[in-house]
Design a binder for these strands. Structure first.
Lengths: 361, 361
DNA sequence: TCCCAAGATGTTTGCGTAAACATAGCGAGA
DNA sequence: TCTCGCTATGTTTACGCAAACATCTTGGGA
């Protein structure tokens, strides 16, 4: 193994002693500044600045001399100084709840990727509890942190409290919201997904489709439920009562236990894969075969869903696209391109696996 | 619904017009500065600074006047200026691969929480591909971003390439590494977990335990595998050949298919829950009952694992503790407390559910 | 040959903050 | 009463960078 050479060299050469004796809390020696480079290269600091940025109007020879000096000294521009000068922070804040769903994590991932490609860093602003106080304080933190824009990955109505104020001029994008919330929105086309799921079950011949809903506070959940209901009604079917879970497998399990006791129940559309998983466990325990006795459809298409037992038919969300489009929208707002899309919807896709089939008989 | 009032008001009052006509790329009007507050309160800017920070030596009356002015103007200190002045950024970088495992996400979550409690923000530095080039450029980005410390959530040996240089004086903590990598390490006690899992199966009466290993590039995977092997050997058993997956359910499925064809195979220890899930699917397909014919143990204890079919016996990792302890370690380093723990191990826990039982007969 | 334009480079300045230093005010002890 | 010394507050300065402006070259055209 060579890990003792590479990584070590950086750290080990000056070893622990590298840690400057810590004059108080101040971090070790500041790196070389633009001035140091200038001195080393025998030019003015402004020339270094020019090389560091625009590269306009600098003679090749001078430029190389500066570049050499930079490399020599290991110069990196100081973002704080840049931010102070320019008023821009090249940073995007992401406000989200801790212990977010897996889907949100994937969205976050895409956001981080897209942002870093655009030269922005991503700052996390975790929220611990959906109480007003907490959300509000997150904003304070945020404002202090001076980001150039924010992506809000959670139910936007939690923002609708008096004491919450997003700085007026701070560009923002909301995921999982209603259009008309006041901020541009990017989200999976929940309605389409729910329709696809419901229709798939109806097309297989099921006369009724039960729904395991997400928490009523979530717009995604609301949209999925409404669309499921509408699809049933369009087919002339009265929608049965909805039981709401909290996205967790445990809640899906409880509701599955409930639903599974009804012998007439042959088809379930769960608002996410995890609740579908919980419901399937309940059905197994009740001795109802999937898909022979009961068909189950989820929503999300987790990587794991292929390997659930049976492999889960579900609606695939393109989390990556959601993240990417949020950043695109945000960047447009920051660039001042006024007419920004109010609502962007990302299409979904039905993925048929083994958890659905025609009803018995 | 009231979401049309709350959130809107902030944004709607000046409506789209709020967006400053975008004089180039510069973000709208800068907020009020310390000087503005000073003027409003009729004091010097230094007094405002004092109120904003230490609060020492300021008369109650004056302090209140300043506080009022701050509130009035909506003053927030400018972090860039602070950072420039102090040389500290109050920010911690997290270097991680995109689409990391669920466990890493939970760790990240804990990191974000702990960091924000300590007054630090968290900046994400996503890595897209484990090629040298990419990793290296991440460091450049990082250095530019000027964080006060970094947590590295991935196999540390990927850092062992010549062209990678973590700034010498930048405090760092590595998760999923070997001790002696040159950086302090915080991780789950992989060896203990693997021993617990293997021993559990042996205690049930299994004569042999097969292992689905993680990718050899992962230290976690290595440690789990070594410990599993040692546990078998301590029991006088020759360890069978290990098949390595890549943590995904799909790879677990493939290996499960392989393993399941061996009629003598009665016990599997998978290096994570997802591969265990895949393996269980394979066993189902092969008609081998779990746990009657084959027992399966995972590693991680995902939230979903309770609802796998059958509910999975697994090793619980305390991701939250790992995240929290990383930050604690990092903060200590930043404070200059020299003797920082080289390696912190977080204990694991065996969670027995329904996927394990005594072998048939 | 001289002058001027255009490019290359240097100098000044200010972004917002907080340390370092300076001053004013006030009470206690000599 | 005067002075010392402490507290409350003000003034100066520098952090690192990059616009804005100033200056110095150089070469081409009249």
């Amino acid at each position: 193994m060579q890990e003792d050479s590479g990584a070590r060299t950086a750290q080990a050469a000056p070893s622990n002693g590298a840690r400057k004796p810590a004059s108080g809390t101040s971090r070790a020696s500041r790196g070389p500044s633009i001035g140091d480079v200038a001195k080393a290269a025998g030019v003015s600091s402004q020339t270094v600045s020019r090389v560091s940025n625009g590269l306009t109007n600098v003679e090749e020879k001078t430029k190389n001399r500066v570049l050499d000096a930079m490399k020599q000294l290991g110069y990196r521009p100081n973002r704080a100084a840049r931010a102070l000068k320019s008023g821009q922070f090249k940073s995007i804040g992401v406000i989200m709840f801790t212990l977010s769903s897996f889907g949100n994590m994937r969205t976050l991932d895409a956001i981080a990727t897209a942002a870093s490609q655009a030269g922005y860093s991503v700052t996390l602003i975790p929220l611990h509890d959906p109480t007003t106080g907490t959300v509000s304080s997150a904003y304070h933190r945020l404002r202090e942190q001076e980001v150039d824009g924010v992506v809000i990955i959670f139910e936007a109505h939690l923002l609708d409290r008096a004491d919450i104020t997003l700085p007026e001029d701070l560009p923002a994008v909301v995921i999982d919201s209603n259009p008309g919330s006041g901020y541009p929105m990017v989200d999976t086309d929940q309605a389409e997904g729910a329709r696809l799921a419901t229709k798939h079950l109806l097309d297989l011949g099921h006369r009724q489709v039960w729904h395991i809903g997400g928490p009523p506070s979530s717009f995604s959940a609301q949209h999925r439920e409404e669309s499921w209901k509408r699809t049933l009604e369009d087919a002339g079917i009265d929608a049965p009562l909805v039981l709401h879970g909290d996205w967790s497998t445990e809640s899906g399990y409880q509701i599955g236990l409930e639903l599974g006791r009804n012998p007439e129940m042959t088809a379930i559309f769960a608002a996410n894969d995890q609740m579908a998983l919980g419901a399937m466990r309940a059905l197994h325990e009740l001795g109802r075969a999937i898909p022979e006795d009961v068909s189950v459809v989820g929503f999300d298409d987790l990587e794991e869903s292929t390997s659930f037992w049976p492999p889960l038919t579900t609606i695939r969300q393109d989390f990556h696209a959601v993240g990417r489009l949020s950043i695109e929208n945000l960047l447009q707002q920051m660039a001042g391109n006024s007419p920004v899309n109010e609502a962007t919807k990302v299409p979904t896709q039905l993925v048929v696996r083994k958890s659905t089939a025609e009803p018995a008989k």
